[in-house]
Amino acid sequence: MNNAISIKNIKKTYPKTGILALEDFSLEIADGELFGLIGPDGAGKTTLFRILTTLILPDFGTAKVAGFDIIKQLWDIRKIVGYMPGKFSLYQDLTVEENLRFFATVFNTSVEANYDLIEDIYVQLQPFKNRRAGKLSGGMKQKLALCCALIHQPRVLFLDEPTTGVDPVSRKEFWDMLDQLKRKGISILVSTPYMDEAARCDRIALLQKGQVLDVDTYEGILLKNQKPMLALRSAHMFKLLTDLRRFPATERCYSFGSVHHLVLKAGYPYRENELMDYLQNLGHEDIVCQKIKAEIEDVFIDLMSGVA
C-alpha cells in the first residue's frame, strides 16, 4: 500500500531572496489520513504545498503523491489532486455556480457527476448560487473554494490555510466538513496557524522556519513534551507577568488566555510557598496558582525556543 504522500529530504531556497524555505524536510503521510501542518507564517507550509502540487521544484530531494513522482509524473499528479491555495482563488466576478461549473469543466468532469461528494457543503451555498463569489463572506468563500477543489473527486486534497481569517464558528464547521471527507476516503493535508485546530487532525507536524519540530498524533506530541508548568493569575496581570519573569525558578513566562503560564527551570528546587511569598512581597493580591499540563501552544513555544 502506497502512502498518500511521501517526502524525502526536500530542500528549497528561493533564489531571489535567498530565503531558506525548507531544510532537509522528510515526512510520510498514510493513505486516508487527515494530516495537519501546524506553524506560523514563514514556516514553509506554502512552499511545501507548492512542491507537492507540482507548482515548484525542490532544489534537492524527492517526493511522491499517491505514488507518483512530483517531478517526472507531473500530469498524473495533476489529475488526482485537489488544491486550495492560501490566497482566495476563485473568480470574484463569476457567480457561485459559474465558478463551480468552470472548475468542474477544467478537470474534465461535471458538477452532476460528482455532486454527492460536495452535496453536504454545497447545500449551504445553494441559496446564494447566483451571487458573485466576490460578495460572499469569508466563511462562504472558503466553502465554495473547497467545493471547487473537490469537484473532480481528488484522491489527495491539499488545503493551504483554509481557515485563516475565518471566525471560530465557521472554522469549526469547516473542520466538521473535513471529517466527513476523510470518512469518504480522501487523504487530506491541511495547514493552519491556529494551534487549537491541531486536535482535529489524525497526526500533525509542528513546523518552524522550514524545519519539522515534531511529528506525531496530537496526544503523542503533548505526552512527550511535558514540562513542569504553572498557571497563575492575580489582580494585576501585566505586573504579574513582569514579576514572574524575574522569579529565579522561571524558565519562561507568557500570557495564555486569562492566565499566565510559567515554565519552571529543569532541576530547580521549587516550592509553592516560595513563589507565593515572592509575589505577596511584591504586593500581588488574589493570587491563584495551579499546576497544569502543557497544551499544544505551550509545546510549540517550547520547541520553538529550542530552535531559536
Binding site: 502540487t53 507548482l55 486550495m84 482563488s89 471547487c148 477543489a149
Partner: peptide
C-alpha cells in the same frame, strides 16, 4: 494575482 492561476496549473489543463 488572484491565485486562480495556481489552481489552473494544478489541473490537467
Amino acid at each position: 494575482e488572484m491565485g486562480t492561476m495556481e489552481v489552473l496549473l494544478v489541473s490537467p489543463m
